[in-house]
Each structure stands twice: as structure tokens, then as C-alpha cells.
Design a protein around this nucleic acid. Structure first.
Length: 197
DNA sequence: TATTGGATCGCC
DNA sequence: GCGATCCAATAG
């Protein structure tokens, strides 16, 4: 199996890490159950300079992981029923994270279909809430180390794709920032009006 | 202590 | 286009 991404991969500026996450494989191991998928869409969130970021107004009990060591998971609960998972970036003390917005399912597809309650492979990971449901990611994984054995990223050398960017989805503040990155033409990217630009 | 609206999704 | 349904952050 290809090597896990090292701490140094995450400990960089958020806007450098975000596009580099595209094409990497997210692996989730829960007991004996393994699910995995290729990251095809991410969004970057920064600190006090980014009004759309949870870290915009400084450190709170909820967002403190964004200020911590890079390479950990920041998982939060949203809209009363969904979870979203981020990768913490930047050196400790500087807030930053990348939201994983879409995955192309690779391994454990049957398990993911069962968790999602559907069989359309295109709807298993095309959205931050959906992919968390498919990979069984919830509050229990908040703070999890991506260098550990339950949730981690590997690089299988996948490359040659074209990266596109757009404003981030579903936010009001910071729409001037084009900090959503996705793989052009990939069928597992979330649907929205920016994809054709 | 009360209010408000959100880094969503699925159905109308 | 809108409701479901929780809770963090802000205001009072």
C-alpha cells in the first residue's frame, strides 16, 4: 500500500494544501471495515482574514482544532443532522483547514451504499454530509490524527488531471474568494452552477 | 438566557 | 424552492 502523507504535507499554507489534496485517497478504517475514496473536491478555510471561516472570530471551544497541529481532523455538526470533515493545515497557532467536499468511491462501496441507504454510486460521496455518512465519520473522529490508523490519506500517484476553482459553496461571506478546488470533468464532484465555468 | 442562522440534503 | 432539526455564537 502506498505511504501515508507525512505531517509536512499538512503543515503548509492552506491554499497550497487544498489543491494538493485532490487525487489523494481518503481511507477510513472502522473495526474490520475499510472504506476509501479519491478526493475530487475541497474547499480552503483560513483564519481572521477569512469571514467564511469558523476561525474568523478567533479561538472557541468548537473551532480550537483549526488552531492546533496540522494533520488532524476537524469534524463539526451542521444543520441538525450532518457532519463535515476537514483536514487541519498550517503550523500550530495559525488557523486553517480544508473541507473535504466530495469523494470518488473506491473501496468498500457495498458498505457505503448500506450506510447511505442508496445504491447509486454517484450519490455516495458527492457532498460533505454524504461522504461523512458513507464513511461513518462523526464527532467521535474530531481531532483524529491523519497519521493514525483509523482515518488517513495516501498518495497512489494519481495525476494528470486538471484542477479548476470556484467560489465556495453555501456561504455568504467571502464569495469573492475562489477557494473551492475540484477535478475538472470528474463525475463525483458536487453539482452546482460553477462547474461549467 | 434567548435568538438566530448555518461549510447540507432530499424531496416538493 | 423549502423544511428538517441541532447547536454554536452572539446579543441582551
Amino acid at each position: 500500500m502506498p505511504a501515508k502523507l507525512p505531517r509536512s504535507f499538512y503543515c503548509r499554507p492552506t491554499l497550497d494544501v487544498a489543491p494538493d489534496l485532490l487525487g489523494k485517497i481518503l481511507v477510513r478504517i472502522k473495526g474490520k471495515t475499510v472504506t476509501s475514496g479519491r478526493i475530487v473536491e475541497v474547499e480552503a478555510y483560513r483564519n481572521a482574514d477569512d469571514p467564511a471561516s469558523h476561525a474568523y472570530r478567533g479561538l472557541t471551544p468548537r473551532n480550537h482544532l483549526m488552531f492546533g497541529e496540522a494533520g488532524h481532523a476537524y469534524v463539526y455538526f451542521i444543520y441538525g443532522m450532518y457532519f463535515c470533515v476537514n483536514v487541519v493545515t498550517e503550523k500550530a497557532g495559525t488557523a486553517g483547514a480544508c473541507l473535504i467536499r466530495a469523494l470518488e468511491p473506491l473501496g468498500g462501496i457495498g458498505v457505503m451504499e448500506k450506510r447511505r441507504g442508496i445504491e447509486n454510486i454517484h450519490d455516495l460521496g458527492n457532498g460533505p454530509g454524504k461522504l461523512c455518512q458513507a464513511m461513518s465519520i462523526d464527532r467521535a473522529l474530531n481531532g483524529e490524527d491523519y497519521l493514525g490508523d483509523t482515518l488517513f490519506l495516501i498518495d497512489d500517484g494519481f495525476s494528470g488531471f486538471r484542477i479548476k476553482r470556484s467560489p465556495r459553496i453555501g456561504i455568504r461571506a467571502g464569495v469573492d474568494k475562489r477557494w473551492r478546488f475540484f477535478i475538472q470533468g470528474n463525475g463525483y464532484v458536487t453539482k452546482n452552477k460553477f462547474n461549467a465555468l
